[in-house]
C-alpha cells in the first residue's frame, strides 16, 4: 500500500471533524452541560488548593502559586488526550460487540481513523481554564517572559501530553486481551490527579516508581522544573521529551499490535 502523506491525513481529519461536530450540535444541551461540568471539575481542584493553602503556607517548599502552576500545566497537557483520544473509552465496547472490524477495512491508518471519529470539544473548556491558571501563577511568580521560555514551555507541554496519551493508549489497548479495560482506563485517568503534586513529597521508593514504572511525574513535575526552578533542572527533565516520544511510539505499537490480531466476533 502506498503511504499517504500528512496533508492527506489532515484533510481527512478536517472532514471527519466537521461531521462529528454536526452530530454533536444536535445535542446542544448535552454539550453545554458537559462543558459546565468540565469547568466545575477544574474549579473544584482550584478551590481545594485554595482551602489547603489558607491553613498551610507551603507543601514541601512549594508555595501556593508554584502548586497552581503545576496544576495549570497538568490541565493544559491533558487537553490533547481529552480532545483527540476520547474514542479510546469506547474501544472496549466496539471490540466486544464486533463493530471494531469496520475500522479494519479502511485504506488509511487504523489508529488514526479510529481516533479521528470523535473530537471531544469539552476539552477546550479545560484548556482555557488551564491556560488561565498558568498565566495567573506565571504573573504572580514573576517568571518574566522571553521567546526562549515560551519555546521551552511549549516543548515541555507537548512532552507531557505525549506521555499522558501514551498511558491512555496502552490502557485502552488492553481490551484486545482482557474483557473489561474500563477500570484500567479509569486508573490512568486518576493519574492526572496525582500528577499535580511535586514528586519530592514521596519517599525514594515511590519517587522511583512514579518516575520509571508509572511515569506520572513526567506529566507535570519534571517538565515544569525547567520553567519553575531553572537553576536546578535534573537530567531527567531534559530527557523527558525523548521519553515522551518513546512512550508514545511504544503505546501506538501496542495498540496496533492488538488491533492487528483482532479477529472480530464473527457477526
Amino acid at each position: 500500500m502506498k503511504r499517504k502523506g500528512l496533508g492527506f491525513y489532515l484533510k481527512i481529519y478536517g472532514k471527519i471533524l466537521a461531521q462529528d461536530l454536526k452530530s454533536k450540535m444536535s445535542y446542544r444541551a448535552d454539550f453545554i452541560i458537559s462543558t459546565i461540568g468540565m469547568i466545575f471539575t477544574n474549579i473544584a481542584g482550584f478551590v481545594s488548593f485554595w482551602i489547603l493553602f489558607r491553613n498551610f503556607p507551603s507543601i514541601n517548599g512549594w508555595n501556593y502559586y508554584e502548586i497552581l502552576f503545576l496544576y495549570g500545566f497538568s490541565l493544559v497537557s491533558l487537553t490533547p488526550v481529552q480532545c483527540f483520544l476520547d474514542n479510546n473509552w469506547s474501544l472496549r465496547m466496539y471490540v466486544y460487540s464486533g463493530d471494531f472490524i469496520k475500522y479494519c477495512f479502511r485504506p488509511i491508518n487504523l489508529f488514526f481513523y479510529y481516533q479521528s471519529e470523535v473530537f471531544d470539544i469539552k476539552g477546550l473548556g479545560q484548556l482555557a481554564f488551564g491556560i488561565g491558571t498558568l498565566i495567573y501563577s506565571w504573573i504572580k511568580l514573576g517568571l518574566g517572559f522571553t521567546p526562549l521560555i515560551l519555546l521551552k514551555t511549549i516543548v515541555f507541554l507537548i512532552t507531557a501530553s505525549l506521555i499522558m496519551m501514551a498511558l491512555q493508549n496502552a490502557a485502552a489497548a488492553t481490551c484486545f486481551w482482557i474483557q473489561n479495560s474500563f477500570y484500567l482506563l479509569d486508573l490512568t485517568l486518576k493519574f492526572k490527579d496525582y500528577a499535580k503534586y511535586p514528586i519530592t513529597i514521596f519517599s525514594p521508593v515511590f519517587r522511583f516508581i512514579f518516575t520509571f514504572i508509572m511515569p506520572i511525574a513526567f506529566i507535570a513535575y519534571y517538565p515544569s522544573l525547567v520553567i519553575l526552578r531553572p537553576d536546578e533542572v535534573p537530567l531527567l527533565s531534559w530527557l523527558s521529551p525523548l521519553f515522551g516520544c518513546a512512550f508514545f511510539w511504544f503505546s501506538y505499537k501496542l495498540w496496533m499490535f492488538g488491533a492487528m490480531k483482532y479477529s472480530g466476533t464473527g457477526s
Binding site: 445535542y27 444541551a29 448535552d30 452541560i33 458537559s34 462543558t35 461540568g37 468540565m38 473544584a44 482551602i51
Partner: peptide, 28 residues
C-alpha cells in the same frame, strides 16, 4: 437533559468537595 456525563461529573464534584471527602471540612 439527555446528558449523562456532564450531569454526573457535576454531581460528583459537588458532593466530593462539599462533603469533606477531598479536604476535611474542619479546614474550610
Amino acid at each position: 437533559t439527555e446528558s449523562i456525563w456532564g450531569i454526573n461529573i457535576m454531581k460528583q464534584v459537588i458532593v466530593l468537595l462539599l462533603s469533606g471527602a477531598t479536604v476535611p471540612i474542619a479546614f474550610f
